[in-house]
Amino acid sequence: MTDLSPAHRKAGRIAALTIIMFASVYAVLGSQIEYSFSSDPIGPRGFPIGLGVLLAALGVWYYLDTGACEDWPDRRGAQAAALFLGLSVAMMLAMPYIGFIIAMAILLTGVARLFGASWPMAFANGIGQAVLWWLLFGPLLGSHLPKGPFGF
């Protein structure tokens, strides 16, 4: 934690506004939940509405007193995080089509590169770990992992 600077205060206020917005949308959607019958006096809407109102009130409190936060990553850090998340999501979406081993090998090679491995080491690590985890969770533990065009 670092001392509260204008940048930290701004980040906290943006977060507080996001929370207030989320709480408001949540409460409104909660009040529109459709149901035909409820055996209790609160019903399925009561709890979400109550929580939405409470969260919005806490959001206002947070806006007024944002407290400390950490420094945000620089441009390079943000790019690396975006690359990691983008690659992860892409490989998860591709996994049902290209299979577990290929998707994981590509993802883990990329992650290893981001954490400083050279290309040959990253490849060896990506392929090695993908096969190892597949063997452990697939044939050994019986999980149904997606198969690609090559049957794995």
């Binding site: 949540y26 019958f37 209790d40 399925p44 969260l55």
Partner: peptide
């Protein structure tokens, strides 16, 4: 305030899904 917000966020996440009492989709 951060502790309380965290706790309420946790609570809101539990309301996602079919309501066990009324069967409503939330």
């Amino acid at each position: 305030v951060k502790t309380l917000i965290g706790c309420v966020i946790g609570l809101t996440l539990t309301t996602i899904g079919i309501d066990a009492t009324s069967g409503a989709y939330r």
